[in-house]
């Protein structure tokens, strides 16, 4: 069986081989990266053989009439190769080495952190490479998947064009880590995107007078999809009384922002975070 395959391969190579111009040097039409190849020569006597290609520049002695053996290691880079056989004159031939089957997927995903519910916010680009790091240009289907926990958020097969497949989609509705996977046959590449709460929604505050002023605090701060806004998000409290206005910035801690405001008269306290305004609170003067 192996012999039969070998004979078939040899016949294919012979059929596929081309003659380089008027010169009597027959080179293979194309070779897959990493494969070996042979080039027959004619005539007799000594000659110099040259192989000039990407990553290789070989010179060796040659007895005309014998086959030239090209090792897989010499043909690992995809690209054009020039073969020269020089005795009295030089004969030449060129052939291409094409990428082998995909062995890895380069996968670029943006961004690493994204607010929920944003259109066209997550994108990814996948490029298949063979084991020798050649870009695989023959079309292949890459499956893109976004999963949050065990829930699939997005799934799409994309055919590579010129060795590239890409997608773009909206972010999901729930905060948390999202796994982004690009897969091609038995290859897959994973990235993570952290979905975070969007801007606060329905910002509400409560407050009370204390001996040194007013203590105000927000109710638990959520975005419009109900995700808890992350700690550290700044909430701004503004207090307006008869003799002036004061402002305090407070970070959210465990879902709630608190601030103490020094004010003795009747005071109106308002709250904002980013571009979102909350309710106003009217607190009477200190008794």
């Amino acid at each position: 069986m192996h012999r039969l395959l070998f004979i078939c391969a040899a016949l294919c190579l012979a059929v596929c081989s081309i003659t380089a111009g008027a010169q009597d040097l027959r080179v293979p039409a194309s070779v897959t990266a990493g494969d070996e190849a042979t080039i027959p020569t004619t005539g007799s006597g000594k000659a110099n053989f040259y192989l000039v290609g990407p990553g290789v520049s070989r010179k060796s002695d040659l007895t005309l009439g014998e086959e030239i053996h090209l090792q897989g290691q010499e043909l690992r880079n995809a690209g054009d190769y020039l073969v020269l056989v020089c005795s009295d004159t030089c004969h030449s031939g060129t052939f291409f080495v094409t990428a082998a089957k995909p062995a890895s997927l380069a996968f670029l995903v943006h961004p690493s952190r994204v607010p929920v519910g944003l259109g066209d916010a997550v994108s990814g680009v996948a490029l298949p490479f063979d084991q020798f790091h050649n870009l695989v240009l023959s079309p292949a289907t890459v499956n893109f998947q976004l999963t949050a926990g065990d829930k699939s958020q997005f799934s799409r097969p994309v055919r590579t064009q010129n060795g590239v497949a890409w997608f773009r989609t909206a972010s999901g509705k729930s905060a948390g880590a999202v796994q982004v996977i690009a897969s091609l046959e038995d290859l897959s590449s994973k990235r993570a995107v952290q979905q975070v709460a969007s801007d606060p929604c329905n910002l509400r505050i409560t407050g009370q007078r204390i001996p040194i002023g007013i203590l105000v605090q927000t109710e638990p701060v959520h975005d419009c999809a109900g995700n808890v806004v992350p700690d550290g998000t700044i909430v701004t409290f503004s207090a307006t009384e008869a003799n002036g206005k004061s402002t305090v910035d407070a970070p959210i801690k465990q879902g709630v922002a608190r601030a103490k405001i020094e004010a003795s008269g009747e005071t109106v306290v308002s709250v904002a975070s980013g571009v979102v305004m909350g309710n106003e609170l009217r607190i009477g003067a200190k008794p």
Binding site: L108, H110, P111, S123, V125, Q161, N162, G163, V164, W166
Partner: peptide, 14 residues
């Protein structure tokens, strides 16, 4: 230029 990634981090040219 035949491909320019959405976020501008890779470009394919022929």
């Amino acid at each position: 230029a035949v491909f320019y990634a959405p976020e501008g981090d890779v470009m394919e040219l022929h």
